[in-house]
């Protein structure tokens, strides 16, 4: 059903009316599932809202100096200890007030985006690769390999992401962005493997796979050229929604003190701010809002992508 050569009949009515000839598809070019999904996405306002927000966060992560010229590490205890926010001073250092060290909360929040965005994307890339390969092998080859790989997936499913990440990260005395990525990817690949396995099992019985095999295509070619493109849709959907979860888990680990160290990051800042919650809630609430907004954008984007890729919902 997901075969790109069988484009869903979403074409204009004129195509059907003016196409009595065989091969009438020359009038309206056949669209692939991806193109169809893109058309669907473009008309979805939720997609645009989340996309704009995400572009904004990506910009913050890539070039924070675009938003603020204040150094996030610059501390001025004498003048700015827990300074209250000045909601009218847009893009000024005191827009969101100052923290317990006299650092600008606004500058720290802008610079904190980088860690979350890098970790979110790298972990998602990692789990998609690992889970995808495991799921593909299990689904395509079946038999003993499938049993082994599926049990392996079950085993890792028994350990929650946060718990596994904590135990693994505790072993590192010096933790950087990459150690956190490694820990989260180690315990986050299972949903992707399950989705990929299911999709491959459905696809490998399709006629075009039998046809390709009859024409003498090798296993690698069948897997990469025929099956993989048709399994991408569900994998992309699950990966996008998972991305938000990874950003959230990273912040949780940093908040617990087992995540990032000596990096400007939302999780670390929220963790530091909990002691001054009573006197200066803004120090905690500003990075927390940015963090939640990032997760929300990814969830919304994932929802929109799922609606676009699911032909049944059209």
């Amino acid at each position: 059903m997901l075969n790109p050569t069988q484009a869903p009949e979403a074409g204009p009515v004129s195509a059907a009316a003016e196409a009595p000839l065989p091969g009438g598809s020359e009038i309206t070019k056949a669209r692939s599932l991806g193109q169809d999904a893109w058309r669907e996405l473009r008309s979805n306002p939720i997609f645009w809202v989340s996309a704009v927000l995400l572009v904004l966060f990506l910009l913050m992560a890539a070039v924070p100096s675009l938003f603020t010229s204040t150094d996030p590490g610059h501390a001025d205890l004498r003048n700015h200890y827990l300074g209250k926010p000045e909601w009218g001073h847009f893009f000024q250092p005191d827009w969101f007030g100052y923290n317990g060290q006299g650092q600008s909360v606004y500058a720290r929040t802008i610079y904190g985006a980088r860690a979350s965005v890098i970790i979110g994307f790298c972990v998602t890339l990692g789990v998609t690769l690992v889970g995808g390969v495991i799921g593909m092998f299990a689904g395509y080859f079946g038999g003993l390999l499938d049993t082994l790989l599926s049990r392996l997936t079950d085993i890792f499913f028994g350990i929650p992401l946060l718990l596994g990440g904590m135990v693994l990260l505790q072993a590192f005395t010096h933790r950087t962005i990459w150690t956190v990525v490694l820990a989260l990817a180690t315990f986050g690949w299972m949903p992707l493997a399950r989705v990929m396995r299911g999709a491959v099992i459905t696809q490998k019985q399709a006629d075009f796979v039998t046809a390709a095999r009859a024409l003498g295509a090798g296993t690698t070619r069948i897997l990469l050229r025929h099956i993989l493109p048709n399994t991408l849709a569900p994998v992309i959907v699950v990966a996008t929604i998972a991305l938000g979860g990874f950003v959230s888990t990273e912040a949780t680990l940093s908040y617990l003190g087992i995540g990032l160290q000596s990096t400007v990051s939302w999780g670390v800042d929220i963790s530091d701010a909990q002691n001054v919650l009573r006197d200066a809630p803004h120090v905690l609430l500003v990075p927390a809002s940015f963090l939640s907004l990032t997760v929300l954008s990814f969830i919304l984007l994932g929802d929109a992508v799922r609606d676009a890729f699911d032909p049944k919902l059209r």
């Binding site: 908040y255 909990q274 905690l284 609430l285 929300l296």
Partner: peptide, 18 residues
């Protein structure tokens, strides 16, 4: 519910405490 799902648990906790 969409908003609740996107706020990490520890943030919900702090907002509740606050």
């Amino acid at each position: 519910t969409l908003i609740v799902t996107s706020i990490p648990v520890f943030v919900i906790g702090f907002v509740t405490v606050f």
